[in-house]
């Protein structure tokens, strides 16, 4: 009989202890975690960043990733974009009763691999099991802590007119691909999520350039929503060029079929940077030399400080407002 998760696995008793010792420690072993204390204990004395994110994606396994890899990279990306080098993660599961243990192991192995690739450690965690139909298979929360070296901290650099907006690669891939998966559409190999760990790309850029004035990874709401966030946070007007938005051919096609504008579709491996004009060319050159930034493109610029709005220059030469995402266009994609 297939092993499944039972209510007892989340009860705090022996079944849970077994799960932790046999599986969690096996996959995620490191000295801090292995102490098995109520908290992971460590020492740091620098500028720190702390972030948290919950992952409820359906399907939990997809072509080039799964909910485990996503829950590591998603949180690492939130750290690195503020200039933090990720160090430690917490990892919490909410699991639906009856979930196959084999699938849990597969997710743990994936988390382990993602951590090893990234040089981060899971140092504390939690597991809860809820009755059948009270959750959809498995939900994961991770929190991450990282250190910010002073030269990577861009927060006090001032965004000004003529700064350029760079996106590090093709837009909208994760959201549209997951929608196709949910619909059961058979897709070619090139159709996949852009899920990736941006740490090396972004910290590398922050090490080399002091005119990077803002970095954020484009997730839910897509690039359009992110640009609107910049506008309202800094009170600037941004102009985006429709024709320069990097977009894979399949993204264009899928967006037509699904009626979802790629500029509102989520990414999981793309960042948007605001860069001072004097360094923009060099930043672009650096990004393009990195495997995760080879399609990096200037997509627009900071136009003025008169109004906090994003405008899109269309391919037919008109100009219109580019609003942030309203409501939700996509079901659980991250």
């Amino acid at each position: 009989m297939q092993d499944i998760i039972l209510m007892a696995h989340g009860s705090g008793g022996d079944a849970m202890r077994n799960l932790i010792e046999k599986d969690f420690i096996k996959y995620l072993s490191n000295p801090i975690l292995n102490e098995l204390l109520d908290s992971g204990v460590f020492e740091l004395s620098e500028r720190l960043a702390l972030t948290t994110d919950s992952y409820v994606i359906s399907p939990i396994f997809f072509k080039n990733g799964d909910i485990g890899r996503l829950s590591v990279f998603g949180t690492l990306n939130d750290l690195c974009v503020v200039g933090a080098k990720p160090l430690f993660l917490s990892l919490s599961f909410i699991i639906e009763e009856g979930f196959p243990v084999a699938d849990l192991r597969r997710i743990l192995a994936s988390i382990s691999q993602a951590c090893n690739e990234s040089g981060v450690k899971v140092i504390t965690g939690d597991t809860k099991v809820v009755e059948k139909n009270k959750a959809d298979k498995i939900f994961i929360n991770t929190a991450g802590i990282g250190v910010i070296e002073k030269h990577r901290d861009w927060r006090n650099r001032k965004i000004e007119p003529n700064d350029l907006i760079i996106v590090t690669g093709g837009i909208g891939e994760h959201g549209l691909y997951i929608m196709l998966e949910r619909l059961g559409v058979q897709t070619d190999d090139e159709v996949k999520s852009d899920l990736s760990n941006l740490t090396d790309l972004i910290l590398g850029a922050l090490d080399r350039f002091d005119q990077i004035k803002f970095v954020r990874d484009a997730t839910r709401g897509g690039v359009a929503t992110l640009l609107n966030e910049i506008c309202s946070k800094y009170g600037v007007e941004i102009e985006v060029y429709e024709q320069d938005l990097p977009m894979k051919e399949w993204v264009r096609n899928a967006s037509e079929v699904l009626g979802i504008d790629p500029i509102y579709s989520a990414c999981e491996g793309r960042a948007v940077l605001v860069v001072g004009k004097s360094q923009a060319e060099k930043v672009l050159e650096y990004l393009r030399s990195h495997p995760l930034g080879k399609d990096a493109t200037v997509i627009g610029k900071v136009k003025s400080t008169n109004v906090a709005k994003v405008y899109l220059l269309t391919r037919i030469g008109t100009r219109r407002v580019l609003e942030s995402l309203k409501g939700d266009i996509l079901p659980r994609i991250c």
Binding site: T314, I316, G317, T318, R319, R320
Partner: peptide
Amino acid sequence: ISRYGIRSI
């Protein structure tokens, strides 16, 4: 028509 600002031209 709205998305491409066609009225404006």
